[in-house]
Design a protein around this nucleic acid. Structure first.
Lengths: 212, 212
DNA sequence: CGACAGTCTTGACGACTGTCCAAATTCTTG
DNA sequence: CAAGAATTTGGACAGTCGTCAAGACTGTCG
């Protein structure tokens, strides 16, 4: 935002575009660094300085690329979820049978739960924050819709491979998949740059168990 | 906590008890005042000073009755939920038919959604916080279990009045009731001491819609 | 009445927050 | 290479935070 405010507005279009692309690429680089800390500490406990210190950037840079903290966090979760919603697409188009689709889908789902529990946790956190912080509401709602569409693509394909009509609605399909997922996510332990430790496969029921 | 640390430990038992009761009563008074602000702003945005300013107490009192902020918040949500879990008990014992139970239950549920949306919202918030703040986990899990039991009492009674066995498990019954409830809660607008304004009965789907 | 424990108020403390900005640095372009 | 724009840095700023403690107030009991 700061950069847009400065000069060079009337540059020729051929140079303008790659410059904006570079700017956006940097934003995403920063957002990914921020996600590291955000997923670990949650929204309430994460400060810009903490993000910076936990990355290779200084805290000033974040204010050069983002108008404020909420702008950064929105960008973070948007970027992450944009990757999420394409996760099953390849499985959907390549599966040739119902069983193949089921297996491929569950494999990807399991892998996600294993490796990206902190991100899921962060997403739950931000959905709650959106109830109090109006600035989040629009983004959260939009992402939720895209998740709904993602699951619906899987469900539709499943019905198609079965030679039937889908038996549910997009919203219900999302809800159905959410419960077992959130149960697993809530069990994932926090880890703070102490090397890779696999999330336990099964533990005792933990707090925040079942966030449905 | 502070008081317990000071003297008067060897007071006679007859005087000890009412004094502790008075102390606890005061704690609950403070907790209820804190819930006002907490339900309005959520965990992340609520400070002790904000709580105090939004009540008839000074911020120092809270430190006299609670060891720290987390202690206060845990007490708040414990106290509120303790009231919650008895909400339907009267309906359960007094209902003489399946229809009577259904009607009584839904009436109470609707009334709660109308008047206590901020509290529900706060509860969702704290469940998310528990994923990051270990100090919350124990309380959250415990409360969740009591909610499960609460719904199960209704479901069991319903089955009994129908002359059948319950068709679900306690956990599933809780999940089933949660989804429509959280949808409604997420729609409730924030209100900050600007007089009573009824929550809208139905609106467009809002963010944080469906927290399942 | 005086002593005293319990209760409450008030102001202060250091740590931390988001934001801003001037200077330093790097990169691009003429 | 020189000039100017873009980027990056790190410190300063005004607030706010949780916590603490010294003193004031209250009621009770000897």
């Amino acid at each position: 935002m700061a950069r847009r405010a400065t000069g060079a507005a009337q540059r020729v279009a051929v140079a303008e575009v790659p410059r904006d692309e570079k700017f956006n690429a940097r934003r995403i680089e920063l957002a990914e660094a921020a996600l590291e800390t955000l997923g670990e500490l949650g929204f309430a406990r994460t400060s810009l300085r903490e993000i910076a210190q936990n990355s290779s950037f200084t805290h000033g840079v974040f204010h050069y690329y983002f108008s404020d903290k909420l702008d950064l966090i929105c960008c973070c979760v948007r970027h992450y979820k944009a990757k999420c919603v394409t996760r099953y697409d390849e499985v959907v188009v390549s599966a040739r049978s119902r069983e193949e689709l089921t297996e491929g889908f569950l494999a990807k789902l399991a892998a996600t739960l294993e490796t990206e529990a902190p991100m899921h946790r962060l997403w739950y956190d931000l959905r709650s924050q959106a109830m109090f912080e109006p600035a989040f509401r629009k983004d959260v709602l939009e992402i939720d819709k895209s998740l709904e569409a993602m699951i619906w693509r899987v469900a539709s394909r499943y019905a198609e491979l079965s030679g039937r009509q889908p038996v549910s609605s997009p919203r219900c399909a999302l809800c159905a998949i959410r419960r077992p997922v959130s149960e697993r996510v809530a069990q994932a332990p926090r880890q703070r740059h102490e090397g890779r430790s696999r999330t336990p496969c099964r533990g005792t029921t933990s707090a925040a168990d079942d966030l449905s």
